[in-house]
Simulated scan of single mutants.
Amino acid sequence: MLWLLAHDQYALLGRGGVAKEVWKLYFHWYGILRHGAFPSGDHLWQYPPGAGAVLLSPGLLPGLTYFQAFVVITLFTDALITLVLAYAGTRRGRSLRGAALWIGGLPLLWHIPLVRYDIQVTAFAVVSLLTVGRSARLGGAFAALGALVKVWPALALIGTPRGRGTRQAWTTAAVTVVTLLAVVAVLFRNPFDFLRQQGGRGVQIESLGGTVLMLARRAGWSGTTRYQYGAVEFVGPHVRAVADCSLALTAVAFALLLLWRLRARHWTPATPYDAALTAVLLFTVTSRVISPQYMIWLVGLCAVCLTTRHTTQRPVAWLILAATAISAVVYPAFYGQVINSTWRGCLLMLARNGLLTTAAVMSFVRLWRSGRAVPQREDADAPAGKDRVAALFPTGR
């Protein structure tokens, strides 16, 4: 990945456009943040206040340029996630497949993960999921920290079992968010300006709705594409209707997750992990934007699921890995084909988003069935092998 980043001037690697987000956009925001303010009136700034801490962190490494320091911190965070997954996999009844999936899955996105801050966000969700079972308060705190950076890590708590632990995790998360937002509001100017920039977003060309509009464009639809709000989006007739449909589907996804939580009767050690993956996958698929770096989140959550042998999401993980590989082909290699809605671009997006949609449906169905399953007490309580024989013949005969 580092080699690709060092040679990203080649056409298939984006001619330097992938890394530009760090040394140009992030560095620009860094200059504003270090003077005690958040970007104001900037339609590209659409992130919660916690993102400011991540963008300021390269300043902690003297002697390096902002770009170099950002990459070093990203690599360090990548190593931290690997170590956490490996440690979780060495516990009794666990598996190292999660660490292996993270190590092998992340490079499928080429050098993109090194020049986005989504690895840092994913770290909060991974640590939250792997600690919430042992310390509900600590898991809730990490989920809150992640939510302050990019919202979605809050979904790490959606599958916690009912009871005192869940109340502790959610209460700690809420207190952490409110407290830190209050601190940020005192120390910085314009911390909530990002809320004004969300409503104007349209339909990104890589989203599920964008795939529909790509096919419509091939069929004669008069819309076109334009760079706005930090992404290439469709503009033209009926785009707003497609965006509204995406929001409606997101609401349906939330309702399905709420229904699952209300109806679920059976929890396994993997249920919090599986539920987090399902939730993020559903919200990703129904979003108006599906950037390639979003796949980092899904790979990280798949890795957490595979740390336990109780997970129901193994087939989903394979689909997500395939979609991740196609995402790197779409951007940056053939992004021009997608922008111009050529048949090659349409087929690539149909394949990627088809895999994600299939994974989302499969993930929810498997989560739902696992929650309705009746635990087999006889199998769980019955001793195995020689112990079972000893139980049947306590005198040793």
Rank of each mutant, 00 (worst) to 15 (best):
D274K: 01
A276M: 07
T268I: 12
Y294S: 12
T268F: 09
L298I: 05
L298P: 00
A275P: 00
L277A: 12
Y294M: 09
Q293K: 09
Y294W: 09
A303C: 06
A275E: 03
A275D: 08
L298A: 02
F283M: 15
V285Y: 01
L281F: 08
P292N: 06
Y273L: 12
P269R: 11
I290F: 00
A270P: 01
S291L: 15
T271N: 06
W267G: 02
L277F: 11
V299L: 07
V304A: 14
Q293Y: 12
S291N: 15
W297M: 11
Y273D: 11
V299P: 10
M295N: 12
Q293C: 11
A303K: 01
L282P: 06
L301E: 01
S291M: 15
F283T: 13
P272R: 10
V285M: 01
R288W: 06
W297I: 05
S287V: 11
A275S: 13
L282M: 02
T271D: 10
L298S: 00
A270D: 00
S287F: 09
A276H: 04
F283R: 15
Y294G: 07
V289T: 13
L281D: 00
P269G: 05
R288T: 10
L281A: 03
P292R: 06
A303P: 02
R288H: 06
T286A: 15
T278F: 13
C302A: 15
V289I: 14
T286Y: 11
T278G: 07
L301V: 11
P272M: 09
L298K: 01
F283V: 14
P269M: 04
A303Y: 05
L298Q: 00
C302L: 14
V285W: 01
T268K: 04
S287K: 04
L277V: 03
V289W: 00
V304S: 10
A275V: 10
V299G: 06
L282H: 01
I296S: 08
T271R: 07
I290Y: 03
F283K: 15
V304H: 09
S287W: 06
V280P: 05
